[in-house]
Structures are given as structure tokens and as C-alpha cells.
Computed example of a mutant assay.
Amino acid sequence: MGDDIVFWIIQGPGWLLFAYLVVAQCTSALSYELGVRWGTQEPREQITDVGVAFWWGLALADLVFYTPLLAVGLIAHWVGADWVGPVLGAALGATVYWPVASLATVWKARGAAGWKLPKERQYWVVLPLIAGWGAVALVLLVVSA
């Protein structure tokens, strides 16, 4: 596969994901209720206090660790930094990890008392796409190094 194609397979979706994280996750870490109003987080009445705590915890981890790591990794990849492998590789590993953890939570919580996720189908469409891109980008990063 050509270097230009590999570059854009990593960069294009990477920056789209970064923008999504800033809007949906980082904002929700600062104000979960704002995320609920924007439709990027689930209301307490539908997922219980424990569900809110879990989703907020992921949003906070995205704010303080994952989103900055992804940005630094994408910039390193863009400029061809020699340290891109470990940094972007770590971010891409997290890109696979958190959708899997989230889907496992959605699946396991289904039917639990107080848990009613009316937009569950969206999770099963979007999160596998994110995890799939993360896995493909990680493989491309390794083989193109």
C-alpha cells in the first residue's frame, strides 16, 4: 500500500476522532449534564448513577490522557517524528480498548435494574468502527515503520 494512502488512513479518521472526543467526551468530563443536553451522554434516569459514573470516568480519562495523547501522536505522525511509534501506538491501543470496554458494559448492563439505553444501536454501529480503525491504523503504523 502506498505511503500516501497509509498516511491518510491514519490522519483523516484520526483527526475526525480527535474532534469527536473534544466535543463529546472532553466537554462531558467538565459538565456531564452539558453532554446529556447535547445528546453525547446518557441521562441518569436511563443508566443509573453507576452508569453515569462509568461514562463520566471514561470522559475524564479521555480529557486528561487519551485525547492529548492522540493529538500528540497524530502530530508526530504528520511531521514524521522518529518517536511516533510509541506515542501514536499507545493512542491507537486505547482507541481499540475503550470501545471494546464500552460495548462490553452496554451488553452486560442490558436488562439491569434502571438501565434503559434507547440509542443502544448507535453504540453497536459507531464503536466497532472506531475500534476497527484503531486496529487497522495500529497495524499500518507497525508495518510502515
Rank of each mutant, 00 (worst) to 15 (best):
G2P: 12
D3Y: 08
D3N: 13
D3G: 12
I5H: 14
V6T: 13
W8P: 05
Q11F: 01
Q11H: 01
G12T: 13
V22Y: 01
V22Q: 06
V23T: 08
Q25G: 02
C26A: 09
C26V: 15
S28C: 02
S28P: 00
Y32W: 01
L34A: 12
V36A: 03
R37T: 11
R37E: 15
W38D: 02
T40D: 00
P43G: 00
R44Q: 10
G57K: 00
G57E: 02
L58G: 10
L60H: 00
L60G: 00
A61S: 13
L63H: 02
Y66F: 13
Y66C: 05
A71E: 06
A71K: 00
G73F: 02
A76C: 05
V79C: 06
A81Q: 02
A81D: 11
D82G: 10
V84H: 03
G85K: 09
G85S: 13
G85R: 10
L88I: 07
L92N: 13
T95M: 15
W98Y: 15
P99T: 10
A101Y: 04
L103V: 06
A104C: 11
K108W: 10
A109E: 15
G114C: 08
G114D: 06
K116F: 09
K119N: 11
Y123Q: 02
W124M: 11
W124T: 10
V125N: 03
V126I: 15
V126H: 08
L129K: 04
W133I: 04
G134Y: 08
A135G: 11
L138V: 10
L138A: 14
L140E: 07
